[in-house]
């Protein structure tokens, strides 16, 4: 434990360098640069609104904002876990040469995506103003799902980065899994409007859906009262998966060098 803190102190600069590198390099050769972080969710929102607003029945909530909430949270989760998954193998050449605390690689990948996610919330703010969504004090509740999703993404990222060292095809499996998660997140439809109400249990098993529900509550000015299940489920799931991630990573990290 003492060594852990010592290392953390010594290598905190590396951590921020890694975060910075991810953000800097992502948009280095593009003309619009970081604006893509804003443009990309905006464009998907427009497409999804055009396609689905007429197909699926509208509810009380403003549809573009409704889509954007789900889309942004899911975007962070899927990008964060995918980058974390590749992070250890990406830095494989360094792992064999210089001693660096290895958890820095997946965690810095998640953090850099989190920063981009926070930047992209500007789009949400813009669209909310444009669509004249009423702002309430409940907006501050949004911090709760935002913190939970960070813990969850780190946990899942740690597990994935560990096992992707040993099994290369995990990357492709995870892409498929992400697709499944996306369709059960109700990003561009409403659960109430589903034809078969017997399938609602699917949404109760998806912690990311729970987080999106909470986030939408905050944005549209509702308290969490009616969604306490989602709050507790996502919170407990995130903490458990984070501890699992730390445990798995810690157990296996000495073997990385033999496989990367």
């Amino acid at each position: 434990m003492k060594i852990f803190i010592q290392n953390l102190k010594k290598f905190r600069f590396l951590f921020w360098e890694l975060v910075k590198k991810d953000i800097k390099l992502k948009y280095r050769s593009s003309i619009l640069g970081v604006f893509w972080t804003l443009l990309e969710p905006l464009l998907t929102m427009i497409v999804l609104t055009l396609v689905f607003s007429n197909l699926l029945g509208k509810g009380d909530d403003n549809f573009p904002v409704y889509i954007l909430c789900g889309r942004l949270l899911y975007g962070f989760f899927s990008n964060g876990t995918k980058v974390a998954l590749k992070s250890v193998r990406k830095h494989g050449s360094m792992i064999g040469k210089v001693y660096v605390p290895k958890y820095m690689y997946p965690l810095s990948a998640v953090i850099s995506n989190y920063i981009m996610f926070i930047i992209s919330l500007l789009v949400l703010a813009g669209v909310m103003i444009f669509e004249k969504v009423k702002l309430t004090w409940y907006i501050f509740q949004a911090f709760i799902p935002m913190i939970i999703i960070l813990i969850m993404t780190m946990g899942v990222g740690l597990v994935l980065s560990t096992y992707s060292v040993f099994f290369r095809d995990l990357e492709y499996l995870w892409t498929v899994a992400c697709m499944l998660i996306m369709y059960t997140c109700a990003i561009f439809y409403k659960v109430e409007n589903l034809k078969n109400p017997g399938n609602e249990w699917i949404f109760k098993c998806n912690p990311l859906y729970s987080l999106i529900v909470l986030f939408r509550d905050a944005v549209f000015g509702r308290s969490f009262e009616n969604d306490m299940y989602h709050l507790w489920f996502s919170l407990i799931f995130s903490v458990v998966v984070f501890m699992l991630g730390v445990f798995v990573f810690w157990r296996k990290q000495d073997k990385f060098i033999l496989y990367v």
Partner: peptide, 18 residues
């Protein structure tokens, strides 16, 4: 340990922190 997309100057900071 260099990142090939980084410039030499940026790599000094990156490698140094490593």
């Amino acid at each position: 340990g260099f990142d090939k997309d980084y410039t030499g100057a940026e790599n000094i900071y990156f490698y140094g922190s490593m």
